[in-house]
Each structure stands twice: as C-alpha cells, then as structure tokens.
Amino acid sequence: MKIQGIETLHCDAGWRHFSFLKVTTNEGLVGWSEFNEGFGSTGLGALIEALAPIVIGMDPMRIELIGNTLHTRTVQSRGGLNRQAIAAIENALLDIKGKALGVPVHALLGGAVRDRIAVYWSHCGSYRARYPESQTGVPMIRDYDGLSRLAEEVRARGFRALKTNTLLPDGKGGLRSHRPGFGHGAGFPELNWSPEVVRGAHDTAMAMRQGGGPDMGVMLDVNFHFKPEGVMRIAEALAPVGLAWLEVDTHDVRSLELIRRVANCPIASGETLCERRDFKPFLEAYSMDVAIIDVIWNGFCESLKIAAMAEVYEINVAPHNFYGQLSSVISAHFCAAVPNLRIMEIDIDSVAWRDEFVTTPPVIENGAMLVPTGPGWGCDVNEAAVRARPPRA
C-alpha cells in the first residue's frame, strides 16, 4: 500500500473555519485528520501541501519512519507550523492504519485504559458573549446572570466541569472578552492588570460557581493576556471561587514556576508548546499541575510521548481541543490510551452545525464522552457537507 494523494479541505464554522486533511492510498483507503488553519497558524494548509511530495509513494503503515523523515526535512525550523503540518499528516496515517487492520487507533498504541472520558464544557459563555447568534446558532449572553443560568444548564446536562474566560461589562448592555494578549481590545500591548479586569475575572468565575453549584469544577483561562503579576493578582482574587484550575499561557518556564508557587489553586499550561523538547523544561521545573497537550498540533504519537514524560513527574495531562468534532474524536482516542489523564476539553457552543461535518459525532452521556470503537478514528469527514459550506470570505 502506498500514499497516493494529500488534499486539504476547509469549511465555514461561523466565526472561523474548520480544516481537514484527506490522505488517499492506491488501495482505496482514506485517512482523515483535522488541523487548525487560523489563530496563529495561517498558511498551514499550504505548508501541508508543500510537504506532500515527500510522502507520496511511501508506505502509510510506517508512520514513525514518515514522521522522522518529515522531521529531518524541517529540523532547521523545528516546531511551530512545521510540527502542526507533520501532526496533520501523521494523524491521518493513523486513521488509515487503524482501518487497514480493522481496529480503533487507541488499540494500535496499547489499547484503551478507559471507555468513558470525563469532559468539560470549554469556552463556556465566552462564545455566547462574543459572537451573535447569526454566526453560531446559539443565543448570546449579555450579563453575569446569563452566565449563571448557563452554568445551571451545564450542570443539568450532566457536566461536572466547565471553563470560561474573563468577561467584562462592555458599557453597551453586553459583555466583552478581555483578550489583549491576542491583540484585541484595551490592554494591548502592555498586558497590565487593573482592578476592573481583576474584578471582571472574579465576577465571571463567581457567576459560574453560583450557577454550577459547589461541586462544579470551575476553570478560568487567562491565556497570554497578563504578565505574571496580573495572573497572581487574579489567582488571589479568585480564591473564594475555589477554581479547579487557573489556565495560563507562557513560554517562560520561571514565570510559570513563580505563578504556581504562589497561586492558591492548581495551574494548567502547555497548550501552545510543541514537541517533547518544549515541554521538558516546564516539567523539570514542576511549573504546572496539569500539562495541556494539543494533539492536533503535536500529533497523536508525539502527544503520547509527551504524556509519558509528564507521568515521570507525577503530572496528569489534558488535551487542548477547541476545534471541530473530528478533533474531539482524535483527542478521545488519546485520552483512552494515556493512564495519566485529568479531563478532556470540548467545545459545546462552537457552532450549531458542526455535527454535519462528520459521519459519527461524539456521544456524550452525563458529562462523559464514549470512547469510539470503530476502525481508525471511528469517524470520517462528511466531505459533501464540508464542500457545501465553503469558508466565508
């Protein structure tokens, strides 16, 4: 069996695009993966297609060889987009191999250690506050009372944990996201904290606590939006909420180590790190309680290696998963295969029509996703549905 073709596909997902990779073989097997074209990864699809000639004609079953071949061709610019492109190709090849052998991907790599995966409702309220219903198909939230009611819905639907972002009154009868670390709104580029923003972080998380109840795992993600000083102020202010974790993005090991040392809640980090080499100094410094691994960026095989390394330091892992439903399925296979799992991220509000793009949407029961059991990922891309919703300009 030989790799015959590689094609990228993109579709409209409301306020963003979903992107998929299709790898075909000369024997008719098709492998699928999902990748993230936007949010700092512009041009990724073109890079994947540029790497395609290297693997055309190779045996898709020899995934480690293909991965190492691509790594050596890109080693002078390790990580970043190159890693994400390699990951997309490797993930699609795992789908092919599972289908060829008639087994789910997790069975290729030690087998499942669990058949149900605890998931948390991510970006809870964040998307509903930020985007109009015309873009997402879900109703907007305009105040903290609305956040509390949403948290009640989360609890009623059986979820035991949720994650949100800092939301502040916008002065126009709604809420706005505090996102200076991504170049949006006030606070860019200084990333200084202010009493107003710290109060907003507290009020956001407290609204979720009040609606979700005392047993709800409430998490707050501050991304790259603050310097360590601001993160520590927020951690202090949110002590009454009792966070399940405070999520922080930084590429400086010592900054995260300092935050973890003084914070009164667990610290989660790592979603933007690529490969074991990036995670190594953070693990050695014991700078995080939960290592967040992006399986779509790193690739399934590399993610397993990162998780195994994290376990040496007694650290559990959680996949970063704010993409489409195929990504959720891929992440579920990862969660099924690793022993040191904390919980899995999933977007419920992403876009109302996201289930259209896959043949078998994830099944969630009482806050847990059922591990797929079909060959490969156990889920294919609905190519007709993807092509029927081309990306908006």
Rank of each mutant, 00 (worst) to 15 (best):
G137C: 04
V138K: 00
P139C: 02
M140F: 00
R142N: 01
R142G: 00
D143G: 04
D143V: 05
Y144W: 09
D145T: 13
G146H: 11
L147V: 00
R149L: 10
R149P: 04
R149A: 12
R149C: 04
R149K: 13
R149V: 03
A151L: 10
E152P: 06
E153F: 03
V154S: 09
R155W: 09
R155N: 12
R155T: 15
R157Q: 13
G158I: 13
A161L: 06
A161E: 12
L162P: 09
L162V: 05
T164F: 00
N165I: 03
T166A: 02
L167S: 10
P169M: 05
D170F: 06
G171N: 08
G171F: 06
G171S: 10
G173F: 04
G174F: 04
G174S: 14
L175D: 00
L175N: 02
S177M: 03
S177L: 14
F182I: 11
G183L: 03
G185D: 00
G185K: 02
A186N: 01
F188S: 14
F188G: 05
P189E: 03
E190R: 05
L191C: 04
L191Q: 07
N192R: 13
W193P: 05
W193N: 04
S194C: 13
P195M: 14
P195W: 13
E196T: 08
V197E: 10
V198M: 06
V198E: 14
R199I: 01
R199E: 14
G200T: 02
A201V: 01
H202A: 04
D203R: 15
D203Y: 06
A205R: 11
M206C: 02
M208A: 07
M208N: 13
Q210W: 04
Q210P: 00
Q210R: 14
G212I: 05
D215N: 12
M216Y: 01
G217T: 08
V218N: 03
V218L: 07
V218M: 06
L220F: 07
D221L: 14
N223E: 07
N223M: 14
N223G: 07
H225P: 03
F226I: 10
K227P: 01
K227S: 13
P228L: 09
E229T: 15
G230A: 10
V231I: 15
M232N: 12
R233Q: 15
I234G: 08
I234Y: 11
I234H: 08
A235S: 15
E236I: 04
E236K: 15
A237D: 08
A237V: 10
A237L: 05
G242A: 11
G242Y: 02
G242E: 06
L243H: 14
L243G: 10
L243Y: 14
A244M: 14
L246I: 12
E247P: 03
V248M: 06
T250R: 11
T250L: 08
H251E: 12
V253C: 10
V253K: 07
S255N: 14
S255R: 08
E257C: 09
